[in-house]
Each structure stands twice: as structure tokens, then as C-alpha cells.
Write a protein that binds this DNA or RNA. Structure first.
Ligand SMILES: [Mn+2]
Ligand SMILES: [Mn+2]
Ligand SMILES: [Zn+2]
Ligand SMILES: [Zn+2]
Lengths: 144, 144
DNA sequence: TTCTTTATTTATAATCAATATAAATTTATA
DNA sequence: TATAAATTTATATTGATTATAAATAAAGAA
């Protein structure tokens, strides 16, 4: 989890202005428990910011990713990159049917993460762990 | 790890013919310890199969993914999907500088995997675990 | 063998998320 | 206010992947 302020202050510390558009994007990312795509963010904010451009969403997301405050999870069969404001190592569950991604708290991640950091030899910047399958809601339709 | 025969027999069991092109793609995937992209597979096989089409590479990869025999790791900053013939849960180390992906054996993955399968409520089909960072070879150039 | 049908590959065109570019707008500073 | 810099927006472009259809190869019948 990550609050709006962590994202906005990262932008400010990088010497960037906190515009209403950037604030709205940061707020949506921080408050969202989904893992939204750029298109989802754009569509969600458009009613409130009618002049919003998709380019601004992409630019802000890329900046936050470069600053290490947001992770790109990649697509889950929908050909859209999903973004995660929670950069701590954790398991994401992606449904290949409805394309929703949720988190699941697994304590064993911590020890795994320690071991990777100890043994890799890499200068590590972040982790993305995805499990793919059918969510409970989508299982009935596929089992029948 | 996965040998060529596991991939080819999966194609045959699905009622598909084992053509020379499909065999070559399966062999390259199984023998490769990299995590090649479609373009890398295409370029590697072209000398031996001058008439090979990129479409055949994409089609074969998609089929193997649908059969659950190959995983798509997604891109690691190079805008190319990387493929992994090892579908067992394991950690992939991706270098954000040279865009190479290697495996690292971490025993703790097994217990994590058991716990996810036990607790998720999903009908799980596979896992993709990526750590991002600078590989040993790329660290000097970035540290300077 | 031939003929016929089906599967597969290849060549080509199209898609579309993401990026690049430049004009319009906003903000900062003098 | 006027000038300059940063940002947003509108528009055009890119490029990996997909869609489509023609060419080829394989399978099966007679
Ligand atoms: Mn998450
Ligand atoms: Mn791997
Ligand atoms: Zn679902
Ligand atoms: Zn590297």
C-alpha cells in the first residue's frame, strides 16, 4: 500500500510541478486496490478533467515508474500494462478471464525476498510476482 | 527445465502436425537457457529455414502458451515479450540495462508456491516471478 | 498413383497501445 | 505586465503483434 502523499512528494522532490492532473493520477493510483491500466485511469478521470489527455496519463505513469514509486506489472491477457502503486514484494493474482488483478498476502514472500537479495548478485530494484488463473467469480463459467 | 519432446508431444496430443518449423521452434525453446523473444527465435532459425515466417513463430508460441507448456514473461524494458519453457515456479532475474533474463534457484519458492495454491481460492494455471535490476556485468557502467 | 480435402506456412495488410512531436496553455519569475 | 520555462494537449508516428488470404504441404480416398 502507498498513500497519495508518497507519490506526490516523489514528483516534487524530482523537481516536477504538482499539477491537478498529476495529483489526480497519484490519488487514483494510491487509493485503487485494483491494478489499473493507463486507459482505465484516463477513462476514470475524464469526467472530472474533461480536457485530460491520455498522453499526460502515460507521462505521469512513466515518471512514477522511473522514480521507483510504481511498478508495471505487464499485461494479463488484455494487451494493456497494469500498474501497481505497491512496490513492496507481494503476490498478485491475475484472472485470465476477467483480467482483474488482486493482491494476496503471503508471509513466505518475505523470506523469499531476503534470499533473492542475498544470493542474486544483482543490484535489485524491484520485484513483480504474478500468479495466473481463474478467480472464484470466473470459475463457474469455465467449469461448466 | 523442459526437453524438446515435452513440447512436441504436447503439440501432437493437441491434434497438430509436427512440422519442421514447429520442431525447430520447440527445440530452440527447450535448449535455450535464455528467455528468447519471438524476434530472437525468428532470427536464430532463419539461416536454417530461409522461408520461415515470423507469423509461424508467433503462432507456435501462442499455441504452446495456450497448452500451458510455455510462459510469457512479458517485456523487460525492451518492448518484446520473452518466453520461458520452464513453467515450474522459479525466480527470473531481468536486467533493465542489457535486457537479459536468467533464472536463479531459490529453495524458498517451493513453500511460497504451496502457500499460494493453498490460500488463493483461484484455479491457478501458472506463476511468473520477476526481479528487476542490474546484472553483475551491467553494474560497473551504471555505478560510474 | 491421381484427385480432393484439410492443415500449415507464408506474404501482406491491419491493429492499436504506446511513443514522439509540436502547438497551446499554464505557471513562475522579473 | 511581459518573458521564459514547464506542462498539457492535439496530432502524427512507431512497431510488436495480430488478422487475412494466397501458396504450399500433407493426409486420405479411390
Ligand atoms: Mn499488487
Ligand atoms: Mn525462467
Ligand atoms: Zn475472473
Ligand atoms: Zn545486464
Amino acid at each position: 500500500m502507498k498513500n497519495t502523499n508518497e507519490l506526490t512528494s516523489a514528483l516534487k522532490q524530482a523537481g516536477l510541478r504538482l499539477t491537478p492532473q498529476r495529483l489526480a493520477i497519484c490519488r487514483f493510483l494510491a487509493e485503487s486496490k485494483d491494478h489499473p491500466t493507463a486507459a482505465m485511469i484516463y477513462e476514470h478521470l475524464r469526467p472530472q478533467y474533461p480536457s485530460l489527455s491520455a498522453m499526460t496519463v502515460y507521462n505521469t505513469l512513466n515518471t512514477l515508474v522511473e522514480l521507483g514509486k510504481v511498478n508495471v506489472l505487464g499485461d494479463c491477457g488484455d494487451d494493456h500494462a497494469h500498474y501497481d502503486a505497491d512496490t513492496s514484494p507481494h503476490i498478485n493474482l491475475a484472472c485470465i478471464s476477467c483480467h482483474r488483478i488482486v493482491d494476496i498476502a503471503i508471509p513466505q514472500v518475505e523470506e523469499l525476498d531476503r534470499e533473492v537479495n542475498r544470493a542474486s548478485g544483482y543490484q535489485l530494484l524491484g520485484a513483480r510476482m504474478m500468479y495466473y488463473g481463474l478467480c472464484p467469480a470466473c470459475q463457474p463459467s469455465k467449469v461448466l
